[in-house]
Amino acid sequence: MNAFVLADCTTVDGALSQLKDGAVVKAGGVDLLDRMKNGTAQPEKLVNIRNIPALRGIEETDKGLKIGALATLTEISEHPAIRKQYQILSDACGSAATPHIRNMATVGGNLLQPVQCWYYRSADFQCLRKGKDLCFAFNGLNQYHAIMDYRTCPAVAPSSAAVALFGLDANVELVSSKRGQRVVSIKDFYVHPDANPTKFAVIEPDELLTAVVIPKPAAGTRSAYQKYGEKDSFDWAIADAGVVLEMDGNICRKAIVTMGAASPVVRRSAQAERELTGKPITEATARAAGKAAMEGATPLSMNAYKVDLFPVAIYRTVRLAAGQMDRDPRAAG
């Protein structure tokens, strides 16, 4: 790891004043230290935001929920109100990484972790995502890569929290000293690599993500997330599903189905949602949703297994959200 200067900040304004000339934000440091040890990131200056009290805490408001950027994955997954009303989010944060990493990892850092493609994470490969003109995954080892929505870079969306936040229609609050605050819908937060492979999200280098804001779910909303990995414990998802159901008695009024490990940006599956909307949630409709979600899938040379795995993940997560099935013991977390 290269040596660096650390600007230890206790206020948002202090941190913003330091975010210039290539300085990089450090929250928990889990992702950043990984890239610095690998030599793929060599910042000369880190802006430590971990000691900024204003970025901490989880607050319930009459409009919903406001989660400070520094809330850890553990804090979110164990928060009583989140476990009760925003289960998809407690599930997602509670199944990301390992218990000890969840104690350190912040939600802001989780949302902003760059792709986990092993070519990207190695200093030996200079690919599209690093401003070069080649992707190594198409003809290389691509078993963890995308099966949908890719043309340029098939590395998948790495953040479990994002899969939940797409389901909850969340917004993120960003602030810079020059342009002040802006609020961006999670749907517009990520940049698709086909549009710009070197930019992962719309956040600018002089901006801080200060909070995640989640609207209150409509009455009758039930939700769940499940992640499947190669191992039962740590490691990113090979398939995952977020499901939000607005139930009216037995009938599903509105459904949201999201997937992370299928595509470069979290995907909402309109096809799966169509199979559930206006219908009762049953074994048959849940299976149909899983199947429909794979319409148009174009797996790479080594990841056709995902086309079989996602329908199961979606089926089980729909049933879990509807309260018709227990949490899958094979799911991670």
Partner: peptide
């Protein structure tokens, strides 16, 4: 920085 909310450390 002269900002009281910032302390600069290192690289040494």
């Amino acid at each position: 920085s002269t900002d009281p909310g910032v302390k600069v450390l290192g690289p040494g």
